[in-house]
Design a protein around this nucleic acid. Structure first.
Ligand SMILES: [Zn+2]
Ligand SMILES: [Zn+2]
Ligand SMILES: [Zn+2]
Ligand SMILES: [Zn+2]
Lengths: 165, 165
DNA sequence: CACGTTACGTAATGTCATAACGTCACCCTC
DNA sequence: GAGGGTGACGTTATGACATTACGTAACGTG
């Protein structure tokens, strides 16, 4: 629960971000911050916190695991995390992994590049959980005649180079 | 409920298949029958009935909708339909549409071809719900170095030629 | 200051999928 | 023909994932 007297969560001043291991997380979050600022999107503390958790995890995370991770800092119900995930995926800062019902941070530097417009190609290691990502700008060569693609889901499962030995 | 005195459902003689509209359904089901016979798989009445429903639908169907469709012919609980779907997808006779949490019959003639080993590429029309299918036998050209793919999920959403006008 | 917009809190519900256990028929073997 | 393994399904309950609906607070605008 938010202590009484505090402003509501959305207006609470952003705390200093506490990054556990990866220093790259800081870079990614800073890039996301710039990315949103440039486009008039508001990376609120809640959204930033969820993105931070995704980046720290370094792989697909379930929504309810995010929920648990958010609990210590205050109450959190499912809509809270799903709203944050909706924002992040719409903005291209995160992707849903459809076959796992999970979510993962976009691995692109969002400084120079366009946001991922729903066409990320994911390579997911089933041994270590690591995710690699490519951005498709190509249409499949063998699409049915006249089919107009608006969104693609492409996920490859297997073993990454490290785990395949 | 099964009338007492009847043999249990799995041993009940297969009823004549009642196909609503498409005569192609009969062909597909017969092909599936042959496909299973050749490989020592048992297309039981329950599994055949679920496949029949998928073929008749001609597009993605939710598991609980299948469940409702099965009710008239007897009791049906979730595990019943999920077990049938598990068999059908393992055999390559049906595919899960991951981004819709739905299932669709494989469109391949299973007479001449190999089963779909988890590498079907689906083109799903968001207007009419029609599904087209290609079978990928190619690896993506831009996979990470050393990544060994065991299974791919590829789903394209958009407008089919008819709906795109 | 009334008003529309955005973001989040909160409670309840809806949707998708599986665990766990029991029964029955079939098949094999002794 | 008793015993035992296997496969398929029935049944109950629960777990896992996601959304609806409504309320409140902050902010910008005229
Ligand atoms: Zn991306
Ligand atoms: Zn790995
Ligand atoms: Zn197929
Ligand atoms: Zn269409």
């Amino acid at each position: 629960m938010i202590p009484s007297g505090w402003p509501p969560y959305s207006r609470r001043p952003a705390k200093a971000v506490r990054v556990k291991a990866m220093t790259s997380a800081i870079q990614t979050l800073d890039a996301a911050e710039r990315f949103c600022t440039e486009r008039g999107l508001s990376l609120t503390p809640m959204r930033r916190r969820v993105l931070e958790l995704l980046v720290e995890a370094g792989g697909p995370v379930k929504a309810y695991d995010l929920l648990s991770a958010l609990k210590p800092g205050g109450a959190a119900q499912p809509p809270t995390v799903y709203r944050a995930l909706d924002f992040l995926t719409r903005a291209g800062l995160a992707h849903k992994v459809e076959a796992l019902n999970a979510y993962t941070a976009c691995l692109n530097g969002h400084d120079e590049e366009d946001p991922c417009t729903g066409s990320a190609e994911l390579f997911i290691c089933e041994s270590c959980g690591n995710v690699d990502e490519r951005h498709m700008h190509r249409a499949p060569s063998d699409a049915p005649d006249g089919f107009v693609i608006s969104r693609s889901v492409v996920e490859h499962y297997g073993q990454c180079a490290r785990c395949a030995n």
